[in-house]
């Protein structure tokens, strides 16, 4: 019988392939998937895509809200998705990756139509993924994971960043998220990126970077409540609705009332405007420094930059350097 081992193994392989392909077609039939178009372009165009797993988990009677996603290297390279917590930002990110993945496995995909330029690497990062057992701080892990993307990115990569920068304070978080997005935008690979964040300050990036586009997951605001529509629409958003979510989660009324008060006061003092101004200021100062080198501190900065060996610098080190330079500047103001 041992003579037949090879042919039986060959049969097993053939049957396995046939079985998988039958499985794909069964899947397509049951769940209403369509045949994706795979080509050598760099564009990703998904019409009414759905999340294959979540759509199966919905309670009876509810339908999954399908969404369009379009990405390419020339006009819409980075999409900033803002929207309140719980609105389905992460689902949109993941469904995009899963649709690409399914398509390149050879399966049909959960969408109305999908045109996919081949993707060779998929990166997903989620902010503040707890890893306490490993003894590393969440933020360190987050930065570690992000660094490995920035080091490995290619022109056919698909990058999904979910709330990167969440693991630290708001200002740090926004700064890091801003810097990473800028890096990806300026990087020669122009890798397609979806960035979900609730820092709506990042919406301002579209002013300076032309391939970054703002989208938000729409909500309908009623008097004191929000209705999640889970539909991705163009444009930024301005609230996080975190307090609404807290209310929905059953937080005591006292806490909610207090939170609302604090929010009002902070909005009045225009804390967000400050951040925006600060960020703009950072941008401006960087540009100015090239022309205004009389200032001794700016000279210091110039030397600092010139002495930096960019080739050996990791993105994180670059960020830290940036922070150092910022501190030098802030020090000078005092």
């Amino acid at each position: 019988m041992t003579k037949y081992i090879k042919s039986v193994q060959q049969n097993a392989n053939g049957i396995a392939q046939l079985d998988c392909l039958c499985s794909f077609s069964e899947l397509a039939k049951i769940n209403n998937y369509v045949q994706p178009i795979i080509d050598g372009s760099y564009a990703l165009d998904i019409k009414n895509g759905r999340h294959p797993v979540i759509e199966k988990q919905l309670p009876l009677g509810e339908t999954y809200i399908a969404n369009d996603v379009y990405l390419d290297r020339s006009t819409q390279q980075i999409i900033m998705i803002t929207g309140p917590n719980m609105s389905g930002k992460s689902a949109i990110l993941r469904q995009t990756a899963l649709i690409v993945l399914l398509a390149q496995m050879g399966s049909f995909v959960p969408a109305e139509s999908a045109k996919i330029g081949l993707v060779d690497k998929i990166f997903t990062r989620v902010g503040a993924s707890d890893n306490i057992s490993m003894g590393e701080s969440t933020f360190m892990v987050e930065m570690n994971e992000t660094a490995s993307i920035l080091n490995n990115v290619s022109d056919r990569s698909l990058i999904l960043l979910d709330e990167i920068g969440r693991g630290t304070s708001t200002y740090d978080g926004i700064s890091i998220a801003w810097a990473i997005s800028e890096y990806l935008h300026e990087h020669p690979t122009k890798a397609k990126t979806l960035f979900a964040t609730h820092y709506h300050e990042l919406n301002d990036m579209t002013d300076s970077f032309k391939r970054i586009k703002n989208f938000n997951v729409s909500v309908k605001e009623t008097k004191n409540n929000v209705l999640f529509l889970r539909k991705l629409v163009a444009g930024g958003s301005h609230h996080s609705f975190g307090i609404h979510v807290a209310k929905m989660a059953g937080m005591p009324q006292m806490v909610i009332r207090k939170a609302n008060k604090i929010l009002k006061r902070m909005e009045k003092s225009n804390a967000t405007e400050d951040i925006k101004d600060n960020l703009d200021a950072v941008q401006n100062e960087m540009q100015l420094s090239i022309f205004n080198l009389d200032d001794p501190i700016l000279t210091d900065i110039k030397d600092e930059i010139l002495s930096t060996d960019i080739d050996t610098l990791t993105p994180i080190e670059a960020l830290m350097k940036l922070n150092e330079i910022k501190r030098m500047l802030l020090g000078s103001k005092k």
């Binding site: 097993a12 392989n13 049957i15 396995a16 392939q17 046939l18 079985d19 998988c20 392909l21 039958c22 499985s23 794909f24 069964e26 899947l27 049951i30 045949q35 994706p36 795979i38 080509d39 050598g40 993945l101 398509a103 390149q104 496995m105 050879g106 399966s107 049909f108 081949l118 060779d120």
Partner: peptide, 29 residues
């Protein structure tokens, strides 16, 4: 949705290692 154990194992492999070759992908489609 595979039926045979070999199919099940291959499905997992395909999922772990999606293709990059457009011709091969189209063939499966």
């Amino acid at each position: 949705k595979t039926i045979s154990p070999m199919g099940g194992r291959l499905m997992k492999r395909w999922l772990a290692l999606p293709l990059k070759n457009a011709t091969k992908i189209r063939e499966r489609h």
